[in-house]
């Protein structure tokens, strides 16, 4: 076990735990944001640099600070380690820099993007971004390529997190897409237009932190915040059959994996469950799904709205009392 302190809060964690995992165990507001790390994908993380933190004390044995900011998702804790996230101005500034880099070539087409409302980049920009861009060059464009009947790809929105590549590598048996070219010309592609057809390929949609990979069967049907997430399951031979249904009225608009509070899939689901079972009768409904994210969905979520109303009413009542 190793004791690690993050922004003043301590926790004992098993050896081999990363700083990010430890921060998630502590919970609260001091968890570094992560775009490319995904808890269910091996070797993920380290690329986007949003989760960088400052290690102000290396360990009990070797208390020297680490010379550079480190990606918390790929740095394992040492006993006695002290980490600064939100308490370090250096970290916050570097993170603002990373967010700016991620956004300079992003099309900012949220108004027409199906990911809006559950987009990690939106959240990240909201919390760490600047109101105005300093980038005044034309933004990067790519030729649209068709990657098959189920998944729509918008390369301009991609932040190159490698999650979809790792998903294809680790949960499907034949990866046909990958990271091609290099530098800022890198793109996710199949090179020769090739349909990504695989029983589990749809999971790439769920792992995509932005709107680069979206569900064609859900395309332009509804804003996510107008849909109602429900936990549901069915008997499935290929996967666990445990999913989240996104309903509007009695219509199932979309099926996704169930995601944890960090927006990362809990279990992979098969394409049949995801794309073909859009009838409410296909499913056993377990109940409303709690979305524990600070994204737009939750901002206007009824739970929050009710809570906010309660506060507002209390305030007004107090004002009335005070006036009297």
């Amino acid at each position: 076990m190793a004791k690690v302190t993050i922004d003043g809060e301590s926790i004992e964690v098993p050896d081999g735990t990363t700083i990010l995992q430890a921060a998630r165990m502590i919970g609260g507001d001091n968890v570094p944001p992560a775009m490319c790390y995904h808890s269910k994908l091996k070797t993920s993380g380290g690329y986007c640099r949003t989760c960088i933190v400052k290690v102000s004390k290396g360990s009990e044995k070797d208390p020297r600070p680490m010379p550079k900011l480190v990606p918390s998702c790929r740095t394992t804790v040492m006993d006695g380690m002290e980490v600064q996230n939100n308490t370090s101005a250096e970290v916050l500034e570097a993170r603002r820099g990373v967010v700016e880099f991620l956004l300079i070539n992003h099309p900012l087409d949220c108004p027409v993007c199906d990911q809006a409302g559950e987009c990690h980049l939106q959240d990240l920009g909201y919390e760490n971004g600047a109101a105005k861009t300093r980038y005044d060059f034309p933004r990067r464009k790519f030729n649209m390529i068709d990657i098959g009947p189920n998944i729509k790809m918008h390369m301009t929105r991609c932040i190159m997190c490698f999650r979809c590549v790792k998903t294809a590598d680790q949960i499907t048996d034949n990866r046909v897409h990958g990271m091609l070219f290099r530098g800022d010309a890198s793109e996710i592609s199949t090179y020769i237009e090739k349909a990504i057809i695989n029983d589990f390929s749809g999971n790439m949609i769920d792992v995509c932190p932005v709107g680069a990979l979206t569900d064609k069967t859900f395309r332009f049907k509804s804003r996510v915040w107008f849909t109602k997430p429900m936990d549901a399951h069915r008997d499935c031979k290929k996967c666990s059959g445990k999913v989240a249904l996104w309903e509007k009225g009695n219509e199932v608009l979309r099926v996704t994996s169930r995601k944890d509070k960090w927006g990362e899939s809990e279990e992979w689901i098969c394409n049949e469950c995801r794309f073909d079972k859009k009838d409410i009768k296909d499913w056993v409904i377990e109940g409303p799904r709690h979305i524990d994210r600070h994204s737009v969905i939750s901002l206007n979520h009824y739970e929050n709205v009710v809570a906010k109303l309660k506060i507002d009413i209390a305030k007004q009542q107090k004002q009335i009392v005070d006036k009297k």
Binding site: H177, G178, L180, F181, Y191, I192
Partner: peptide, 12 residues
Amino acid sequence: IKPVEVFEVASF
């Protein structure tokens, strides 16, 4: 190896 592994490398 998979064709995409070659594309990835050749384009790099």
